[in-house]
């Protein structure tokens, strides 16, 4: 952990890691989605529309996983005043928001042919929409704070408090009556109610999107570090 605290050492690892994660992720995504579109079977009840699962579920996991990472980084920033932690939290916000938005849009496109509606205000859909709003609020708050020369501590507190929505999203389908169906895959219990022929392309797709997400975060962290360096140097010479 402490070895990564040093930006120079971080860059030494991040530079070669970025293309590996990016291309590796792209390869897995293309493979998994091709299988999802053309090879995987249709569902006994939903028919062809089940294929949306291969983009919807990874987007949902990354939207939620993104905020979890953002909250952990915010916690490290607040307690240990870790400079890289602040940069990591900020780097996660935009890709997290994009995947949360993709989850909502693909879910809506899946809802119409299956449930018969694009949108309903049930607990799962509403809490996921709140996650997207939290991302947008975080990005706006962080930008405003930095413009005034702050260290992003208010944004970090917001990131930490907002994490409470993650377990709410997760348990919404068990705690409340919802239109959205219950949980299909539990990593904790290592069980799934998705047939193996659909489960493996889904897991490969999720792995691919996760790698790509990692590459995007690394790129955004590297950009932030480079910008910091430029600003510091310009200050010194002016």
């Amino acid at each position: 952990m402490q070895t990564l605290a040093n930006p120079a050492r971080f860059l030494k690892i991040a530079r070669p890691l970025t293309p590996v994660l990016g291309w590796g992720g792209a390869l897995l995504i293309v493979g998994a989605l091709a299988v999802g579109l053309f090879v995987a079977p249709r569902d006994y009840l939903q028919g062809e529309s089940v294929r949306i699962i291969y983009v919807h579920v990874p987007a949902a996991w990354l939207g939620m996983g993104g905020w979890t990472g953002l909250a952990i980084a915010s916690f490290m920033q607040l307690v240990w005043r870790h400079p890289l932690a602040a940069i990591a939290a900020r780097a996660i916000a935009v890709p997290g928001a994009v995947f949360a938005a993709l989850c909502l849009v693909t879910g809506s496109l899946w809802g119409k042919p299956t449930w018969g509606t694009y949108w309903q205000w049930d607990a799962r859909l509403t809490s996921m929409l709140i996650l997207l709003f939290l991302y947008i609020a975080y990005i706006a708050l962080d930008d405003a704070e930095r413009e005034r020369g702050g260290e992003g501590r208010i944004a970090a507190i917001f990131g930490l408090v907002g994490a409470i929505n993650i377990p709410i999203i997760h348990y919404s389908v068990e705690y409340w009556n919802t239109l959205h169906q219950g949980q299909s895959i539990s990593f904790l219990r290592a069980s799934s109610t998705v047939d193996a022929s659909m489960l493996w392309p889904l897991l490969v797709s999720a792995a691919g999107f996760s790698l790509l997400f990692g590459a995007i975060v690394l790129m955004r962290m590297r950009a932030a570090l480079a910008r910091q360096k430029v600003e510091a140097r310009l200050r010194r010479y002016s």
């Binding site: 569902d43 089940v50 449930w115 018969g116 169906q181 219950g182 299909s184 109610t193 998705v194 047939d195």
Partner: peptide, 10 residues
Amino acid sequence: LAKHDENYMP
């Protein structure tokens, strides 16, 4: 509205 369950299978 139709509500489906958490099972997915061919």
